[in-house]
């Protein structure tokens, strides 16, 4: 499924955070959104999934969701957003509980999602018993269980340590290779964007505008290969050059007034 953002602007009170955003997320691609803090990338992701109402512009989808899709636009959250009183399996099935599904299919979907994230042995565990990486695996399993048409990943790895981040990136890519689900991925980590994305959209600092959309012209399988390290470094340098001054200026700004936030 395709996701189209047309002329989206947004403001928190008198503070403009996004201005005239046009983006087309192509079917089956991973689009990374990067930008300095306060560039409104998470706000944009919230608008894309219908959790925030933009004050101007519109977001639309084109194409049919895959068979068995229960929630076309599905988020994975930075803070995992797990219910602490539900077990791992309970958290995953939360996404299904309000749908009319045969009990067998419900069980099967949950078991399948848990198995794909390597959580089969942890089905009965509670979130507090899990490490950060395992918690986010639950978050991803909960997203997979509804067979999403577009995945909206809101800094999914930012709360994790570097090694866990690398592990989860590889696992996520392995799963993504099979389904090729369209995905939008917000991050402030250039390396993560260069590992995952087909294209990288760079937002300016507040109010966020699209500064550049950069295709990552190295096939995903070759991105860790030594032979392509040069090209990846070039792309990294280019992105960093785009971001550096913006990030410095953003850093010197006063924190947003109370209603701001990310």
């Amino acid at each position: 499924m395709e996701l189209l953002v047309e002329g989206v602007s947004h403001a928190y009170g008198a503070l403009p955070v996004l201005e005239g955003i046009d983006l087309a997320v192509r079917p089956g691609e991973i689009l990374s959104l990067i930008g300095p803090s306060g560039s409104g990338k998470s706000t944009l992701l919230g608008i894309m999934g219908g959790l925030l109402r933009p004050y101007a512009g519109r977001v639309s989808t084109r194409g049919r969701p895959p068979a068995g899709c229960l929630n076309p636009l599905t988020y994975v959250f930075q803070d995992f957003a797990l219910l602490p009183w539900r077990s791992v399996a309970g958290n995953v099935s939360l996404a299904l509980d309000h749908h009319r599904l045969p009990a067998g299919e419900r069980r099967e979907r949950v078991a399948d999602a848990l198995a794909r994230m390597g959580l089969a042995d942890f089905a009965a565990a509670f979130p507090r018993q899990l490490s950060g990486g395992m918690r986010q695996r639950v978050g991803i399993a909960r997203a997979l269980v509804v067979r999403p048409a577009v995945l909206l990943l809101d800094e999914p790895l930012s709360a994790l340590d570097a090694q866990t981040r690398d592990l989860l990136t590889e696992e996520f890519l392995a799963i993504w290779q099979r389904e090729r689900t369209t995905a939008v991925h917000v991050t402030h980590n250039l390396g993560e964007a260069l590992r995952l994305a087909d294209r990288i959209a760079v937002l300016s600092r507040r109010p966020g505008r699209v500064r550049e959309i950069l295709p990552v012209d190295v096939p995903r399988e070759e991105r860790s290969a030594a032979a392509r390290a040069g090209r990846i470094a070039e792309l990294h340098a280019h992105l960093w050059a785009l971001l550096r001054d913006e990030a410095r200026a953003a850093d010197l700004e006063l924190a947003e007034p109370a209603r701001g936030g990310r």
Binding site: G49, L51, L70, T74, Y75, F77, L94, A95, H98
Partner: peptide, 9 residues
């Protein structure tokens, strides 16, 4: 917000 994002009534 998570609940809303999964379409929970």
């Amino acid at each position: 917000r998570m609940g809303q994002s999964f379409g929970l009534p």
